[in-house]
Design a protein around this nucleic acid. Structure first.
Lengths: 251, 251
DNA sequence: TTAATAGTGTCTTTCAGACAATATTAT
DNA sequence: ATAATATTGTCTGAAAGACACTATTAA
């Protein structure tokens, strides 16, 4: 059968149950050295009082990418055009559409993954009274299937840090190698050897480029003033930075 | 604003334009040493006479995964329960939902990627008179945005072969190292060094396991009888088999 | 001074890739 | 016999990881 073709040729919108399409965003940032996710507090049933990923309906005149960026802007209080929101890395994660995942009607949710540099508390901007950043290891019992979505997003984020330079999306314009290492440590949940990490990062072509500048201060507990770097022009890391303690082969 | 929550609380199905959700499948197989994709011939407008990826509407009682497997079964003539269809690897690829991608109504398509061992011609089974396997390098000018979906699917497939043992999903139950190498060559579009590939495959834990058997015949143009292997229990290849001529870093 | 950090050097092991060599089989 | 293939061996260079070392700075 010519599935889609045949179906749509005879499609009558009123003959089928209503379907809604939303976007949900797994927005990650680093705060105080911990990996945090943006959550909202639900006011309405179902799951009233539960935490959930920020999200909303895809409007008729926008694609899902635009909807995700709009939702992220609404929840974080960032406004388009100032460069901040544009610097947030946003990519599609996966679509969740099992029957019953929303008790009210059939909802397909296109989930997105966002990497943001440290942002002000979302309650400051917008009307998101119940929005905040929460460490990912404390984020549980989320509404709907958002626990699964968050888990999938974290795994994707951890994998992406291996073979892309996206860790720099968590940092400011200029950063030190130590700050970059802290990002990897927060996302992967394990410490990395400082010396080997330093040499490795500088050896990957296009990962970072030096600014020629040096930080005005050393570390909080001593140490020399580190050099400053900015993101390079590589889109893939080669060779990749592989996670350490991944059990071989995953049988 | 509590995006999804607020919206859905006040959701009235008749107050919003109709939205449809379909699945489209990029089903890949190897035929005569070439990577091929399953296509259908469209009979109806729009894009009548054009080729398209097989797909169809997600029914009310099934999730998108089940819908994709059902569509694949309908187009290939494979029937569930015989093991053949179950051995096809199927994974979600990406969702496409830009306004205007279907000229009739708003359609979100959840695309899937399938790896199948060599299958009979689809015209034999089912009622898919206009369905066939076509080499991917000849598949162009597809309906809707299916060129983009196919391109995304091919890139995903090429990447997956690097760090997963999914190449074995293109092979039969038992295969030789040469056959496995031919699969890599077909998907990546470049020849691989026989000696190095052989040693590499056997050195990755859990990639393949020997059957103790030997092929009954050597190659068509001579050579010793090769040993037979089956898929091992690894779900990730470590270390990975990286593609050769990828330009460093991709700036 | 003390302790912590930045950055570099060294060594070992693993692995990728080039290349060679040998044995086996279809034609 | 000839040519193609399967399989193993050898060598070189890249790269990961463990560890050590020096220089610099905050407290």
């Amino acid at each position: 059968m010519n599935g889609e073709a045949e179906f749509l040729a005879g499609y009558d919108a009123t003959a089928y149950p209503a379907v809604a399409v939303t976007v949900d965003v797994v927005a990650l940032t680093i705060r105080d050295g911990r990996l945090c996710v943006l959550l909202v507090e639900r006011a309405e049933h179902p799951f009233a009082g539960h935490r959930a990923l920020p999200g909303g309906f895809v409007r008729a005149d926008e694609g899902p990418d635009a909807a995700a960026r709009r939702e992220l802007a609404e929840e974080t209080g960032l406004t388009p055009g100032e460069g901040q929101l544009e610097r947030v890395h946003l990519e599609q994660l996966k679509t969740y559409g099992d029957p019953g995942r929303d008790p009210r009607l059939r909802v397909f949710s296109v989930a997105y993954l966002a990497f943001a540099p440290s942002l002000p508390d979302p309650s400051a901007g917008g009307d998101a009274a119940g929005a905040y950043w929460m460490p990912v290891d404390e984020a549980a019992a989320l509404a709907f299937d958002h626990d699964v979505i968050l888990s999938d997003g974290l795994e994707r984020a951890r994998a992406k840090l291996e073979y892309t330079p996206l860790a720099t999306a968590f940092a400011g314009d200029e950063f030190t190698i130590s700050e970059l290492r802290a990002i990897y440590a927060a996302v992967w949940g394990e410490d990395l050897h400082a010396g080997n990490f330093h040499r490795k990062v500088l050896s990957v072509p296009g990962f970072v480029e030096g600014t020629g500048q040096t930080s005005t201060r050393g570390g909080e507990r001593g140490g020399p003033k580190p050099k400053l770097y900015r993101a390079g022009d590589a889109r893939l890391l080669h060779p990749a930075l592989l996670r350490p303690t991944r059990e071989d082969g995953v049988r």
